[in-house]
């Protein structure tokens, strides 16, 4: 389990970094999306992986930390997902605006002659 999970995080991260280093804005946005999946998965995994133990308390049983998956990384990742959406939207608008102002979708706003 842990091996696959780690490889999954690694693959997302690699694809994200690759796209992040591309010259076109849309590639960078997708790269950031992939990178944020990798990061969220990574942070989530800081509570270790547990099966079938969602952090929902049964009122008839006295709760104990070992009965649940660690809820703290979950809470952190939940807000991270939503903020990630907001930043993606902001980047998208920046992309569109920059394209409108400079006439190119290159990340530096100028097309390089090579």
């Amino acid at each position: 389990m842990e091996l696959i999970y780690s490889l999954a995080v690694g693959i997302f991260c690699a694809c994200g970094v690759w796209l992040l280093l591309r010259p076109r804005t849309f590639q960078v946005i997708l790269g950031l999306a992939l990178l944020s999946y990798a990061t969220n998965l990574f942070i989530f995994a800081m509570g270790r992986l547990t099966l079938d133990r969602p952090p929902l308390i049964d009122p008839n049983v006295v709760p104990d930390a070992s009965m649940f998956d660690d809820p703290i990384p979950q809470a952190l990742v939940l807000t991270a997902i939503v903020i990630g959406f907001a930043t993606t939207a902001l980047f998208l608008v920046m992309l569109i605006a920059s394209r409108g102002f400079t006439g190119t979708d290159h990340v530096d706003g100028v097309e390089k002659d090579e």
Binding site: E2, S6, V9, G10, I11, A14, C15, V17, F42
Partner: peptide, 19 residues
């Protein structure tokens, strides 16, 4: 590509070590 692969491998290693 090298950077991406190194980053991915590193991330996978880090995740595995922690997990």
């Amino acid at each position: 590509a090298t950077l991406a692969i190194v980053a991915g491998l590193g991330m996978a290693m880090l995740a595995y070590v922690v997990l």
